[in-house]
Design a protein around this nucleic acid. Structure first.
Length: 274
DNA sequence: AGTGCGACCCGAACGC
DNA sequence: TGCGTTCGGGTCGCAC
């Protein structure tokens, strides 16, 4: 379940491993991942090279000569680098083969990830990219910005934190953790969130994302020939997936409820609705 | 416009 | 043990 920190880790690792390698072939084993014309997709890649890898929110952006390849990992998408001679394993859907005998393989158990090829000049009209809100580590993520976005919103703050057009990069896990660290009840209406609470949300988001990037980096070092970035943030989660377990602050049992259809974990005592 | 919810997927966890 | 059912994760598209 990659959130922004893992996508950033994947970007950093892939940058070291695949830039400027000539692409020899592209093998598409499950085409629904790709939202562009398959021939155009292949033609843009074969014979070219990745010149850079960028990121916007949870979108990876592979820069080719004239195109960008956008890639969203959704929940289970992973990239592996393998020797081309290695057998294709289950759930490897897109195989990009380089001239040096290695592959970049896109692996996705649930097939939810998406790729999309766009012309470079179209980046600033590509909705997936332009609609992304401020990122947790962006200086422009301020309480004034959040207050303006929360204004008039009747939805619970938990739901609003998952809106990528407001804060770009938080997923369900981080949203639960951010609200716990901010001592805010996840059901509280976004319009009632105060400036002080916005500041807590911003500070906690930064802290959590920074820590996860740091841990992602550490995890990567233990990988050898392949990389499957899954992150080890489960080691420090305070509330997520911890129903019934003691709150790390006050010891009362963590509650699990549904908000907007998503699992929401919180401490009744530490996150009182005020 | 804002909001709510099913669809997309499939493995793991659960219930019987 | 083996079967069927439920759940979850991010995002989109459709209905109200």
């Amino acid at each position: 379940m990659p959130e922004i920190a893992e996508v950033e880790t994947v970007r950093n690792v892939l940058k070291e491993k695949i830039l400027h390698k000539k692409i020899k072939n592209v093998n598409i084993l499950y085409s629904k991942i790709i939202e562009s014309d398959l021939d155009e997709f292949k033609n843009a890649l074969i014979g070219n090279e990745f010149e850079d890898i960028l990121r916007k929110g949870k979108w990876l952006i592979f820069a080719l000569k004239a195109h960008y390849l956008l890639s969203h990992l959704r929940m289970e998408g992973k990239y592996f680098i393998k020797d081309s001679k290695e057998e294709i394993v289950k759930h490897e859907h897109i195989i990009i083969s380089f001239a040096d005998g290695t592959d970049l393989r896109y692996h996705d158990t649930r097939k939810f990830g998406r790729m999309k090829l766009i012309k470079k000049e179209d980046l600033d009209k590509t909705i997936e990219i332009t609609k992304q809100g401020k990122e947790p580590l962006d200086k422009e993520l301020t309480s004034a910005y959040l207050l303006s976005k929360f204004k008039g919103k009747k939805l619970p703050i938990k739901t609003v934190l998952l809106d990528q057009e407001i804060i770009s990069g938080l997923g369900n896990i981080y949203a639960n953790e951010v609200l716990f660290a901010s001592r805010i009840n996840p059901s509280k209406k976004a319009s009632l969130i105060t400036k002080e609470e916005c500041e807590k949300i911003i500070a906690s988001s930064k802290k959590i994302v920074e820590k996860a990037i740091l841990m992602g980096g550490t995890t990567i070092k233990s990988y050898t020939s392949s990389l499957g970035v899954t992150g080890h943030y489960q080691d420090y989660l305070c509330v997520h997936k911890r129903e019934g377990l003691p709150c790390p602050v006050c010891g009362s049992p963590i509650k699990k409820i549904k908000i907007g259809g998503r699992s929401t974990y919180y401490c009744e005592k530490c996150q009182k609705d005020r």
